[in-house]
Each structure stands twice: as C-alpha cells, then as structure tokens.
C-alpha cells in the first residue's frame, strides 16, 4: 500500500493525465447523459445567486446541479492531491522559463501557483488587480461569450468533431500566446 502511495505521489506523465481527462467525457455521458463542460458552472452560480431578471440567467439551474457537484468534487480532489499525494520536490519547469521568471522575482517553485504572486498582499495591489480581478473577469466573460472553455470546447467539442469548437480552441490559443508573451511579462514588471 505504501508503495502504491509512493508511486502515485510522483508527478504524473502527460499521457496518463490525458487518458484520464479524456475518459471523463464518456464517463459523464454514460453516467447520466451529461456534457463535460466546467465553465457552465459560473453561469449556474450567477443564475442561483444573482439572476437579476436577466434572461440569460433565467433557467432552472437546479437541473444542472450535477455540474456543481462535479466542481465540488474537483475542489476536494485538489485538496487530497495537495495534502496527501503531493510530491515534496519543486515543480520541474523549463530552465528558460525559470530564468525569465527570476528576473521578476519569481523564484519559489514549490507550489502549483507562484507563492510570490498568488498571496493576499499582492491581491490588494495594482499587480493583484490584473492577476486576479482582470484575469478572472476575462476568464468568466470570455468563456461564456465563446460558449465554453477548455473542457467544453477543446475537449468535449473537439472529441465530437465540432468545427466551431476548433475555431474557439484556436482563438483560446492565439489569445494565450499574445498574453503570455506580451501581456504577462508587462504585468509581472508592474
């Protein structure tokens, strides 16, 4: 048993993760005819908490409660992986990324998110305004405008050979390339 836990604790190869994430698509379909798509939950939260008579939020969100259970599970899974199954070593990132981040004072690679950026004191600064508030806003606004996120379009949509999902996925990547290469370095320098 302890050997198994040790085995699980190592960082997983991309192919293992890819197969398991891909299997989520048929698992949800076979369990209850559900489409794998996580960003829809952001809409359900709006519909549940603040529908404000907006037509887009006037629907029976309780019918979609399964998805809220799903993300609840994701939070708990994240907790279990971090507390019980974590690898004590730093995240292995490419040396060129490490070198470029160190110019901005990001040298702590011990966590999934850079501790020197994702902390409460940064949150209440100009940098934090961009990394948390503006970034998060773009994720919520953009995914709903696009009708899905990485799970809904890139994984479910492409798996079902939907060309609008391919358009969306290409646009996600183009936005990401521009952002990571031009915008993020600027924001890190703030």
């Amino acid at each position: 048993m302890s050997n198994l836990i040790e085995f699980i604790r190592q960082p997983w190869h991309w192919s293992v993760a890819g197969v398991l994430i891909g299997l989520t698509v048929p698992a949800l379909l076979i369990l209850g005819n559900k489409n794998f798509g996580i960003s829809a939950n952001l809409r359900h939260i709006c519909a549940a908490c603040l529908p404000a008579n907006i037509p887009f939020f006037k629907y029976d969100w309780k019918k979609e409660a399964w998805n809220l259970f799903f993300i609840g599970g994701v939070v708990i899974g994240g907790f279990i992986a971090a507390k019980l199954l974590s690898d004590p070593n730093d995240v292995q990132i490419s040396p060129s990324l490490a070198a470029s981040l160190s110019q901005y004072g990001i040298t702590d690679l011990s966590n999934m998110v850079p501790n020197q950026l994702f902390n409460w004191s940064t949150l209440f600064s100009l940098k934090g305004l961009f990394f948390f508030v503006v970034g998060g806003f773009l994720v919520g606004f953009g995914t709903r405008y696009a009708g899905g996120c990485t799970s809904g379009h890139a994984i479910s949509g492409l798996s079902n050979l939907q060309w609008p999902s391919l358009v969306a996925t290409i646009c996600f990547m183009v936005g990401g390339f521009i952002s990571a290469n031009l915008i993020v370095p600027f924001l890190l320098g703030l």
Binding site: I38, S39, N41, L42, I71, V74, V75, G78, V113, F130, F131, F132, V134, G135, G136, F137, L138, V139, G140, F141, G142, T143, R144, Y145, A146, G147, C149, T150, S151, H153, P164, S165, V167, A168, T169, I170, C171, F172, M173, V174, G175, G176, F177, I178, S179, A180, I183, V184, L187
Partner: peptide
Amino acid sequence: QIIGGLLFGIGWAITGACPGPLF
C-alpha cells in the same frame, strides 16, 4: 467563439488557469 475565445485566452495565460483548474 472568436471574440470570447481570444478574451478567454488572454485571461487563461494571466491567471494560469481555465475554469476547472481554478477550482
């Protein structure tokens, strides 16, 4: 899918997370 996709892509790189990983 184009406009929203680009905006989400920009946000994805800034936050380092799409909606699933955020949770």
